[in-house]
């Protein structure tokens, strides 16, 4: 009997193999051995320890009695009642107003810049990107203190104007506008770079085809450029909106507390007021607001498209 026939016999004699019953333990073992799972372990641990755990503590504290420092108490809604009975809505409104204004200004400023970086400057665009990203290597506080010295009465701007042109300027600080300026300046890179990503997703051939078919510049902008860059635009706008809504330093350093942002109220509750539960309740409301906005926008954005997986 040759090898071939012997193996054929073996096949004939063999009983049809029953599908192995996969137990839950097996499935778990397979899942744990999955490279995707293993790769996700470090970030998951970081996420649990660095994000979920503190967030859970904040949420729990929000339901503790006011001016207490322990989580082991009977939960209450007193903090939320106190917030809704007071005028904290003013700080929320101020934060949302500043966040909206900042995002609108950044959209107008950053879009042409992003288009120029992607389509006009070519390789030099990366140099511009480095220049624009460079301030990120300096702490916000330092940059804002620099602007304070620049804008304060007798500072670089008003001092120069007075010395060389005899123009006397008062302080340009401590106003809503000064706060807005600080926010636009600090958060510009957070809008610009996602927008650059969005603009770079627009296929040049598609634009050329549109022009070949007689589309005007305005039509191409409205029907091709902006819709196709929209994921990047939305991501940039969302990041900026949420960061600005939770900002504090710009309003204090440049704004002189002319506008009280909600983050300042939260900080005060945790520090001078010694009321962690109310500070936590305000934080929960701010997080809920940011979360709802993110959820609403991400329903309209396909992240896979942005990261080039589709």
């Amino acid at each position: 009997m040759n090898k071939l026939s012997r193996s054929a016999d073996w096949i004939d004699q063999a009983e049809p193999r029953k599908p192995r019953k996969v137990s839950r333990l097996d499935r778990l073992r397979d899942a744990v051995r999955n490279p995707g799972f293993v790769a996700a372990v470090p970030i998951s641990l970081l996420f649990i320890a660095g994000f979920l755990a503190p967030l859970t503590v904040v949420v729990l504290f929000a339901f503790m009695p006011p001016e207490t420092f322990s989580l082991l108490q009977v939960p209450t809604l007193d903090n939320f009642r106190s917030i809704f009975a007071g005028t904290y809505y003013l700080s929320f409104v101020s934060s949302l107003e500043l966040a909206t204004c900042t995002v609108v200004i950044l959209l107008v400023v950053c879009y042409p810049l992003a288009v120029a970086m992607v389509r006009i400057f070519g390789n030099k665009g990366s140099i511009l990107a480095i220049v624009l990203a460079a301030p990120l290597f300096v702490a916000d506080n330092l940059r804002l203190m620099g602007w304070m010295l620049f804008l304060v009465k007798g500072g670089v701007v008003s001092g120069t104007l007075q010395t060389y042109f005899g123009i006397e300027l008062d302080s340009m600080l401590y106003t809503f506008s000064a706060t807005l300026f600080g926010l636009v300046y600090i958060y510009l890179p957070f809008m610009l770079f996602p927008m650059v990503l969005g603009v770079s997703m627009v296929p040049p051939k598609l634009r050329e085809a549109a022009f070949d078919l007689g589309a005007t510049n305005a039509q191409v902008l409205r029907e091709i450029d902006i819709p196709l860059a929209m994921p990047g635009i939305i991501i940039g706008a969302l990041i900026c909106f949420i960061l600005v809504a939770g900002a504090i330093t710009e309003a204090k350093v440049l704004g002189g507390t002319a506008v009280v942002m909600i983050a300042q109220d939260i900080q005060k509750e945790f520090t001078f007021a010694q009321n962690w539960p109310k500070g936590s309740a305000l934080s929960v409301l701010l997080i809920a607001m940011g979360g709802a906005l993110s959820w609403a926008l991400f329903k309209r954005v396909d992240l896979d498209t942005i990261f080039g997986r589709k």
Partner: peptide, 19 residues
């Protein structure tokens, strides 16, 4: 108040420059 600040140096600066 002209402004509110927890930075005593900003306040001293404001008094020096006359704001």
């Amino acid at each position: 108040a002209a402004f509110l600040s927890d930075d005593m140096n900003a306040i001293a600066l404001g008094m020096i420059n006359g704001s």
